[in-house]
Design a protein around this nucleic acid. Structure first.
Lengths: 142, 142
DNA sequence: CTAGAAACATTCAAGCTCTAAATATCCGAG
DNA sequence: CTCGGATATTTAGAGCTTGAATGTTTCTAG
């Protein structure tokens, strides 16, 4: 028998709703700044995660999506001349993604925008640490 | 000048990632139980929120989506004979959604499944309360 | 060395979600 | 009462995401 005698408290359901709400708020924060740069939210997320040479699979993992979706998004970025798909130096199956000069410049502008008005600004640094601990514990459940 | 002298700490970015990760875990929890009943995740969410007679707009709000999306999802539920779109008793613009007998039965089964193995089971009731407070504060930012 | 399993990337079909616009109805000011 | 703004729903179009199937390359057991 676990700690909870009753099957599902409505409090837990409400909590799920709050997590979803905050996640949507974070997504909205990205979207607003993306459109200001002529990007979609997905494109901006990809750009944000491209800290250096990276493969499609790595990008998909950082974006928390399927590789096929990364293909779709990188297609768009490539058409805009922001990213280049180069052959991987050691693995001929893989591609190495590189930012163009424009891509690097746009990414810098994006990071600047994303840094403004964080969706978590309502929490103190101490509260943010507490939240981080709770989320990590919830995600790695037995 | 706000409380945060530096623009965007990487800790804040990581925290956003954790919120997203938990939200995805919650969504996955719903999806697994939905497919076990022959539903999609969106259909299951709609069914879950139909606690009684409800309008399209109310349903959309509870699902945290646009009304046009609720139309799409309810179309599917209606075709499966789970929901009926009835005229609203007092507002002829609106529809009143009602569960059929099958819809009610399936909803009961769904709630039973959703109650098992909550994605938040890794947190104690005390921690859940703490998390709830933090999330509420983060969502209602000035 | 070689055959089979595994990994990387892409394509395609299907489903979800959003925006913008159209339609129907309600409600309040005059 | 009537006009005009607001609200409820739907439709059409587009973008995003996923899962299955495919081609290529790498790895590994024998």
């Amino acid at each position: 028998m676990t700690t909870s005698p009753e099957p599902q408290t409505s409090a837990e359901r409400e909590l799920c709703g709050l997590v979803n709400g905050l996640a949507q708020q974070i997504a909205e924060h990205v979207r607003e700044r993306a459109v200001a740069l002529g990007l979609t939210a997905a494109q901006a997320t990809a750009l944000r995660e491209m800290t250096g040479p990276i493969t499609m699979r790595e990008l998909a993992e950082r974006m928390s999506c399927e590789p096929s979706n990364a293909t779709f998004v990188v297609d768009k970025l490539e058409k805009q001349g922001l990213v280049e798909r180069c052959p991987h130096p050691t693995d001929r199956r893989a591609r190495q993604l590189l930012l163009t000069a424009e891509g690097t410049a746009l990414r810098d502008r994006l990071l600047g925008l994303l840094a403004q008005d964080s969706p978590l600004a309502g929490l103190s640094p101490q509260q943010q640490r507490t939240l981080q601990g709770l989320l990590e514990q919830a995600i790695t459940r037995p």
